[in-house]
Amino acid sequence: SHFELRVGTITLHFDNISEELAEELEKLAKNGVHADEIRRWWEEWLK
């Protein structure tokens, strides 16, 4: 499923992401983690 995450002024787009993972990314964003860090985390997870 597709997921969009708003982090400050940036909107990150994720394809084929589980609800659980989407929730984890939302938690990171709410805790003030920068969009670049979240994207890096996601790319690492995909490997």
Rank of each mutant, 00 (worst) to 15 (best):
G8L: 05
G8Y: 05
T9S: 14
E43Q: 15
H2I: 07
W42E: 01
F14N: 00
K30L: 12
E37P: 03
R40P: 02
K47V: 13
H34S: 15
N31C: 08
L5S: 00
V33Q: 09
V33T: 10
E19G: 10
A22D: 01
E24V: 11
F3Q: 00
I17M: 04
W41T: 12
A29Q: 03
D36V: 10
H2P: 04
D36E: 10
D15C: 12
A29P: 02
D36T: 09
K27E: 10
D36I: 07
E37F: 12
K27G: 09
I38V: 06
K30I: 08
L25C: 02
E26A: 14
N31E: 10
E23P: 02
H13F: 11
E4H: 06
A35T: 04
T9F: 12
R6F: 04
L12W: 04
E26F: 14
T9E: 14
E44S: 14
H13P: 01
L25P: 00
E24S: 10
E43G: 09
W41H: 11
N31M: 13
N16D: 07
N31G: 10
I38S: 02
T11G: 01
K47Y: 12
R39S: 08
A35C: 03
W41F: 13
G8D: 06
L25E: 00
T9H: 12
N31K: 12
W42P: 01
F14T: 00
W42S: 06
N16E: 04
W41M: 11
S18R: 04
L28D: 01
E19W: 14
E44N: 15
E37S: 08
L5R: 00
K47L: 12
S1E: 08
N16Q: 04
L28C: 04
E37K: 08
E44D: 10
R39Y: 13
V33N: 08
E26I: 15
V7M: 06
K27L: 11
E43S: 14
I10T: 10
S18Y: 03
V33E: 07
L46Q: 12
H13L: 09
L21F: 06
E44R: 15
W42N: 02
E19D: 11
W41E: 04
S1A: 08
E44A: 15
I10Y: 03
E43D: 11
R39D: 03
L46F: 10
A29C: 04
L21Q: 09
K27T: 11
W41A: 10
S18I: 03
E20D: 10
L21H: 05
L25G: 00
L46Y: 09
A22H: 04
K30D: 07
N31F: 11
F3A: 00
L5Y: 02
W42C: 07
E20I: 09
K27V: 09
H2K: 05
L5W: 02
E43K: 15
I38H: 01
A35D: 03
E44L: 15
E44W: 15
S18C: 04
E24W: 12
E4Y: 06
N16Y: 08
N16H: 06
T9D: 15
L12Q: 00
G32W: 07
H2G: 09
E23M: 14
E23I: 14
E37W: 12
R39P: 01
S18D: 07
E43A: 15
E26W: 14
L28Q: 08
R40E: 07
T9C: 13
H13I: 14
F3P: 00
A22S: 06
A22Y: 10
L5D: 01
G8Q: 02
W45Y: 13
H13M: 09
G8M: 03
K27D: 08
H2Y: 08
E44I: 13
A35Q: 06
H34I: 10
A22G: 05
S18M: 03
L25R: 00
H13D: 02
I17K: 00
I38N: 01
T11M: 06
T9K: 08
H34F: 09
I17N: 01
D36L: 13
T11R: 03
H2F: 06
D15W: 15
K27F: 09
H34T: 15
I10V: 12
K47N: 11
D15S: 12
I17D: 01
L21K: 05
S18K: 03
T9M: 10
L12T: 00
L25V: 04
E23L: 13
K47A: 11
A22R: 13
L46C: 10
N16G: 07
A35P: 13
R6W: 05
F14I: 04
E43L: 15
T11A: 03
H34A: 13
V33K: 12
L5M: 05
I17Q: 01
D15M: 11
N31T: 13
L28H: 08
S18A: 05
R40T: 09
E20N: 07
E37N: 09
R40H: 09
T11H: 04
E4P: 02
V7H: 01
T9N: 15
E23D: 10
E19R: 12
K27Q: 12
L5E: 00
W42I: 07
E20R: 07
R6C: 05
K30S: 13
E24P: 01
K47S: 12
F14P: 00
V33P: 04
I17S: 01
A22P: 01
F14V: 02
F3R: 01
E43I: 15
E43R: 15
D36G: 08
H2E: 05
E19T: 13
A22I: 14
G32L: 07
S1K: 13
L21M: 12
F14L: 03
I10G: 03
H2S: 09
H2D: 06
T11E: 02
H34W: 08
E44Q: 14
L5A: 01
E4S: 01
D36S: 09
E24F: 14
W45D: 02
V7A: 03
E20C: 06
L12R: 00
L46I: 10
N31V: 08
E26G: 11
I38C: 02
G8I: 04
L12Y: 07
G8W: 07
D36P: 07
N31L: 13
L12D: 00
G8R: 01
S1V: 12
N31Y: 11
F3H: 02
L46P: 04
A29E: 03
S1R: 12
W45S: 06
A35I: 10
E37G: 10
N16A: 04
H13E: 05
E37R: 07
V7D: 02
K30H: 10
N16K: 04
L28K: 06
E23V: 11
N31P: 06
R40K: 11
G8K: 02
E26Q: 14
A29T: 05
K47P: 04
T9I: 09
L28N: 02
L21Y: 03
N31W: 12
A22V: 12
E26H: 15
